[in-house]
């Protein structure tokens, strides 16, 4: 599974130094369980960040705090200048900035693919229907399944569904894309088609946060890797640094188990 060679001809675009996500002292508890402990992280515009970590390490919870799906109890998160608070207005503003892709796709099963993708643009962005459909078809073209527009999610394979989910998130024209284990529910032969779409997205300069177990993807595409364990960030660094020369014992242990 692990690919060691890097795709050199499409090296990452030069990144800006403009901060888009700033997390300071983020703490979260589920009941008595302290699931995020003082997480500090700054992400620049256009950066591709891969979050690794054993299960239960808080990586999914962390990515879900960024668009307010999980409220935090301490610390603060700032997205593109908007402070994520309990104010519904701020949360709505931040959700317009961020798109999210889930492990279980979460497409709306009672709507056609086209309806799934145009629902947000039409009702949240108030786009005219024709324009929203044009955008949706372009996005389906981009994720490689233009011919599926009028089918229902249940008629598509897992990989196709996940690509529709990516198109649905992109239809809101977000600044940031959050991926919460996008390939974990897929059959092995479908993982590649989803990763290819994500790679293309990364090359286009999208800011991305990906929780994933795909080490090949992390090595090839990530600008920076963050390793979570026990609700804390253990180590961060470029893929080379983290994979080839890990500093922390827990990083070594984790990598030895997964590679």
């Amino acid at each position: 599974m692990v690919q060691t060679q890097r795709n050199i001809e499409v090296g990452p675009l030069p990144k800006t130094n403009e901060t888009i996500i700033k997390c300071e002292g983020v703490n979260k508890w589920f009941g008595d369980m302290h699931v995020l402990k003082d997480v500090n992280l700054t992400i620049n515009k256009g950066e591709v960040l891969v979050i690794l970590g054993p299960s239960g390490s808080g990586k999914s919870t962390f990515i879900r705090t960024i668009n307010g799906l999980e409220p935090i109890q301490k610390g603060h998160i700032e997205i593109d200048g908007v402070n994520l608070s309990h104010d519904l207005k701020d949360i709505e503003a931040i959700r317009k900035e961020t798109g999210m892709v889930f492990q279980q796709f979460n497409l709306f099963p009672h709507m056609t693919i086209l309806k799934n993708i145009t629902l947000g643009p039409i009702w949240v962005k108030k786009k005219p229907k024709a324009e929203a459909e044009k955008l949706a078809r372009e996005l389906l073209e981009r994720v490689g399944i233009p011919e599926q527009a009028d089918k229902y999610p249940g008629q598509l394979s897992g990989g196709q569904q996940q690509r529709v989910a990516i198109a649905r998130a992109l239809a809101m024209q977000p600044e940031i894309m959050l991926f919460d284990e996008p390939t974990s529910a897929l059959d092995p032969e479908m993982i590649k088609e989803v990763l290819d779409v994500m790679k293309e997205l990364a090359r286009s300069g999208m800011t991305m946060l990906c929780v994933t177990h795909e080490m090949g993807f992390a090595r090839e595409v990530a600008d920076r890797i963050v390793l979570f364990d026990g609700g804390e960030i253990i180590e961060t660094g470029t893929p080379e640094k983290l994979f080839d020369n890990p500093k922390h014992e827990r990083t070594k242990l984790f990598l030895s188990q997964i590679l």
Partner: peptide
């Protein structure tokens, strides 16, 4: 209705009524 449906609707910006 699984919780994922609510979450997906939230992340594309739909309000509770929508």
């Amino acid at each position: 209705i699984p919780n994922g449906q609510y979450e997906a609707a939230k992340t594309i910006g739909l309000n509770p009524v929508q």
